[in-house]
């Protein structure tokens, strides 16, 4: 009896509430946890400077955000998806299937991805992509042969690195950061060490070789972190040998606990990332549903405010928090004001 009662009454109540639900008057945003701090800074300043209510920003990861974004059009779907990777064809397919056709892509700037370790830990101060690949790749090139990764210590393959156990906390697969880590570090290292060429010589086609290159060892040597950088920090904090993958902004807020490693001899800084010298960086985006502009009050104003010079420019608050501002911001501003959609 009571089970039936619970469900029926709950359903009845929810039905009543659904009809009573008033029109939404604030912008709703979800997606990448890397973009979240920037979006929350903008949302706060937006609420202060405009008569619109402060937008609601949630996190959950780029892919999760885009999935919610593509659920459909209407007030109970989100208006903006934050993403730390470009939109994929699979996302667009899902969107199209659910009737989300006109999508405006906005690039807000760049984010550096840094390798950092405990401040008092071993001297992980300089890496090449090849080092990371040799340490973390599941198959590496040893004496001209592609073998399952035998290395247990960094010094095993590069005498300049400390003789300490390999342990890395890398972003989980639902994070946009993972893709950058795979493309810009593992794949690069795979090519640099010649492992990729060796795999292709061994009969793999290029795609298969790339897939094999970005495969990580797992097995407790690489640990996928599905949570936030705070979790990575906690892991690094308790493992002196561990290195963690962080966003530049997060590292800069925790310089008292972390020391950063250079990649290819370049120190990650906003300047080196903006100039492209530091190799491991990626653009950050948010996507707007054009169908919601004019329906949800303040949506377009929010988008324009986000990329305004005083916010996303080199002297704005986003840059102060760690965003590397986009040299081509003016183009983006124009695209947003014209509401240019993808394709």
């Amino acid at each position: 009896m009571s089970l039936v009662k619970i469900t029926t009454s709950a359903l009845a109540i929810s039905a009543v509430c659904a009809t009573a639900a008033v029109a939404r008057d604030q912008v709703q945003v979800a997606g990448s946890s890397t973009v979240l701090p920037y979006a929350s800074i903008v949302a706060e300043a937006f609420g202060e400077n405009f008569d619109f209510p402060t937008p609601v920003v949630e996190s959950g990861g780029s892919s999760a955000g885009l999935k919610r974004f593509c659920e459909g059009v209407g007030e109970n779907t989100i208006d903006v998806a934050n993403s730390s990777r470009p939109i994929r064809d699979s996302d667009i397919e899902l969107c199209t299937k659910n009737g989300v056709t006109d999508i405006i892509e906005v690039r807000i700037g760049y984010d550096g991805i840094v390798f950092a370790s405990q401040i008092d830990g071993p001297a992980y101060t300089a890496f090449e992509p090849a080092d990371i690949f040799n340490a973390l790749g599941s198959k590496v090139l040893v004496d001209g042969k592609v073998v399952a990764n035998p290395h247990t210590q960094w010094a095993d393959f590069n005498a300049d690195l400390p003789a300490s156990d390999i342990l890395a906390f890398i972003p989980g697969t639902k994070h946009g950061t993972r893709e950058v880590f795979e493309d810009k570090v593992l794949l690069q290292g795979c090519e640099d060490t010649g492992a990729m060429q060796a795999m292709m010589d061994g009969g793999m086609d290029e795609d298969a070789a790339e897939d094999a290159c970005i495969e990580v060892r797992g097995n407790g040597i690489t640990v996928d972190i599905d949570g936030d950088y705070t979790e990575t920090l906690a892991r690094v904090d308790s493992n002196p040998n561990g290195i963690g993958v962080f966003g530049l902004a997060f590292y800069e807020n925790n310089t008292d606990k972390l020391k950063v490693a250079t990649i290819g001899g370049v120190e990650p800084k906003t300047e080196t990332i903006a100039s492209g010298e530091y190799p491991v960086s990626r653009p950050l985006f948010f996507f707007i549903k054009k169908a919601h502009i004019g329906v949800i009050p303040g949506l377009k104003e929010y988008a324009e405010f986000f990329i305004a010079d005083e916010i996303a420019g080199p002297d704005g608050p986003l840059s102060a928090y760690g965003l590397v501002s986009d040299p081509e911001l003016a183009t983006t501003q124009e695209a947003v004001s014209n509401e240019d959609t993808l394709n």
Binding site: L36, A43, E44, G47, P53, T54, V56, E58, S59
Partner: peptide, 10 residues
Amino acid sequence: IGMVGYIATN
């Protein structure tokens, strides 16, 4: 149900 996240300052 989405109650965790940055929430409006209103």
